[in-house]
Nucleic acid binder design. Structure first.
Length: 418
DNA sequence: TCTGGGGTCCTAGGACCC
DNA sequence: TCTGGGGTCCTAGGACCC
């Protein structure tokens, strides 16, 4: 059996842990730059406010219902996630961290009679030790566990835990699951299936394999197998290295000057290079892009791909090529809204193919990067950084309603008065 | 006024090899 | 008049996830 533990309204729950006055009140958390609604409390869901909607479109509802609004506080959410995962791991050591608020659990070593108690106990302990409520679904495959999880979350009778452990139950739940509720079936495939009379997960499992393979490719076929109770998507125990590393942000305000764009590209290049070094890899290719606001007139967007002469993870080198790329696509007279840096062609940093004509003193730059990373690790990110990244950063993203970093910054630790 | 960020996998088609 | 068979690698584009 596989389990999936999924935190309820995760970002909202994190805010509530340190601000209990938000309990039972409508709360939303916004995306970066305070753009869209990305987390909603149950009260907000009940009002019919959709996931991902731009916040300016629901300003009236927010006012009318006195909804508490927060900018996203990733320092807090990442740390709370780490805590939740470490508690889960104490109960079920073999697991796959699937996203910031979800983990698949390997329950194959546990006797079937014990699983119910184990899961209920795990859930209770996570709540007690971290303050984060979660739901757990258990089933013979990951895809079915996801369905069980939804049931556990939506139906209060289940008390946050749903065990899908019989064929009768599988049939019952699949008949009550719409195709768009299946993990792996997105909006486009849902429309496609419904147009052909397939509305429920159960109907999908009764469909011919050849037809599925032809129309939904092998990924669709894997999903159908999983719905039938045959595991086709294994647990990933160790996190594979990223094949692509991307850092991109929208700007707090439109940016017109090349200088400010240079600061942002240098910042994103440095962040990407840092991520690259964290996984002990090198990149072969740098892509940079800039774009204006696509919802407005006078649109311009462009990108530039640069092949590096020798694979590297050195910030100076990556930044230099990224800025060179920027110069080549920058056009004056536009109000830029977003920029990004993407590293690809990623390989391990051991056994690099040398270039006969390489003139860069690589040992020295590697040592320099090591020292920088150590300082920043010990004293906090951006304790030291390159001047090209800018100091004032007039373009930096908007986070007007951010809560304190309660658990990661000594200056922002909660004060309790007796 | 205001519209997120970061990923993966699969397929088709083109270029190339012998 | 007639024009093979069997591969690999790479990329763009489209789908999906949270």
């Amino acid at each position: 059996m596989f389990g999936i533990a999924d935190c309820n309204n995760f970002y909202v729950s994190c805010e509530r842990v340190f601000n209990p006055s938000l309990e039972n009140k409508p709360v939303v958390v916004l995306s970066n730059n305070d753009g869209c609604i990305v987390a909603r409390s149950n009260e907000v869901k009940a009002l019919g406010i959709a996931m991902g909607i731009p916040v300016f479109k629901v300003r009236n509802l927010i006012k009318e219902h006195d909804i508490a609004v927060y900018s996203s506080n990733y320092a807090l959410y990442a740390d709370m996630s780490r805590r939740v995962m470490s508690v889960l791991e104490q109960f079920i050591p073999s697991m796959e961290i699937y996203s910031i608020d979800e983990a698949f659990l390997d329950l194959r070593g546990f006797s079937p009679e014990r699983i119910g108690d184990l899961i209920a106990n795990t859930r209770k302990t996570v709540m007690q030790w971290t303050g984060i409520p979660l739901s757990i679904g258990v089933a013979p495959t990951k895809t079915l566990a996801k369905i069980a999880n939804r049931v556990a979350k939506k139906n209060a009778d289940y008390k946050g835990v749903c065990l899908l452990n019989s064929d009768a139950m599988r049939e019952h739940l699949l008949k009550h699951t719409a195709v768009e509720g299946i993990w792996g079936i997105g909006p486009r495939l849902s429309r496609f299936l419904k147009a052909r009379g397939i509305y429920t997960a159960w109907q999908l499992t009764c469909t011919n394999d050849f037809w599925i393979k032809k129309n939904l490719t092998v990924t669709g076929l894997r999903t159908v197998y999983e719905l039938r109770g045959i595991p086709a998507i294994p647990l990933e125990y160790n996190i594979p290295d990223k094949q692509q590393i991307c850092t991109s942000r929208s700007f707090g305000q439109p940016v017109e000057k090349l200088n400010e764009l240079r600061e942002s590209i240098a910042t994103y290049a440095a962040r990407s290079a840092q991520k690259l070094r964290q996984q002990k890899s090198l990149a072969n290719t740098v892509l940079i892009y800039i774009r204006t606001n696509p919802f407005k007139e006078n649109v311009y967007q462009n990108f530039r791909v640069i092949s590096l002469p020798v694979p590297t993870s050195c910030t100076e080198e990556i930044t230099e090529y990224a800025l060179y790329g920027l110069e080549s696509i920058f056009k004056a007279g536009y109000a830029y809204k977003k920029a990004g840096v993407i590293l690809s062609g990623i390989i391990p940093d051991t056994g690099v193919q040398q270039n006969l004509f390489d003139t860069v003193p690589r040992d020295k730059s590697r040592q320099r990067m090591n020292v920088m990373d150590l300082i920043n690790q010990k004293n906090g990110n951006d304790t030291v950084y390159f001047a090209s990244q800018g100091i004032r950063k007039s373009w930096k993203m908007k986070r007007d309603m951010i809560s304190p970093a309660y658990t990661t910054n000594w200056d922002e630790v909660l004060t309790v008065r007796v």
